[in-house]
Amino acid sequence: MKGLTNEIELGAALRDRRKRAGLTQARLAELAGVSRAFVMDLEKGRRPRAELNRVLSVVRALDAAVVLVDHHEMAPDDLLAALLGNR
C-alpha cells in the first residue's frame, strides 16, 4: 500500500477505484452529489484546493476510506499490522 502524497496521485487512485467499480464519472458524481466536472477535475488532479467534504463524498461513494499513515516508509508487514490494530 503506497501512500498518496499529492492531488495527482489521489486523482489517479480515485479514477482507478471508479473504473474497478464499473462506474462512469457521471454516475459517481450522481452518487456523491457533486458535478461530473468536479469528478473529472479531481481525477486529473486539477482540484488541489477542493473542499474536503466534497472530496470525501466522492471517496464514500466509491465505498472507500481515507487512512492516515506516518509519512515515512513503513514495511508492508508493519503497515498491515497497524491497519489491523495489532501495533
Rank of each mutant, 00 (worst) to 15 (best):
K2A: 02
L4Y: 13
T5D: 14
T5H: 13
T5F: 11
N6A: 12
I8S: 10
L10H: 12
L10T: 08
L10D: 03
A12M: 13
A13D: 01
A13V: 03
L14S: 10
D16S: 08
D16L: 07
R17K: 12
R17H: 11
R17N: 08
R17S: 13
R18H: 05
K19G: 06
R20V: 08
A21W: 01
A21E: 10
A21I: 00
G22N: 14
G22Q: 10
G22W: 10
G22R: 00
G22D: 06
L23S: 09
R27T: 09
E30T: 03
E30G: 00
A32P: 09
A32H: 04
V34C: 04
S35A: 00
S35E: 02
S35I: 02
A37I: 09
V39M: 04
L42Q: 06
L42A: 07
K44Q: 11
G45D: 07
P48V: 04
A50V: 11
A50P: 09
L52S: 09
N53L: 09
R54T: 01
R54E: 05
V55W: 02
S57Q: 05
S57V: 02
V58H: 00
V58Y: 07
V59M: 08
V59L: 03
L62Y: 01
L62M: 03
A64M: 04
A64V: 00
A65L: 04
V67R: 06
L68W: 11
H71E: 15
H71L: 03
H72A: 08
H72C: 02
H72V: 12
H72E: 15
H72Q: 12
A75M: 07
A75H: 15
P76M: 06
P76D: 08
D77M: 11
D78W: 07
D78N: 04
L79G: 08
L79W: 10
A81S: 15
A82W: 11
L84H: 12
L84T: 10
L84Q: 14
G85S: 02
N86G: 03
R87A: 13
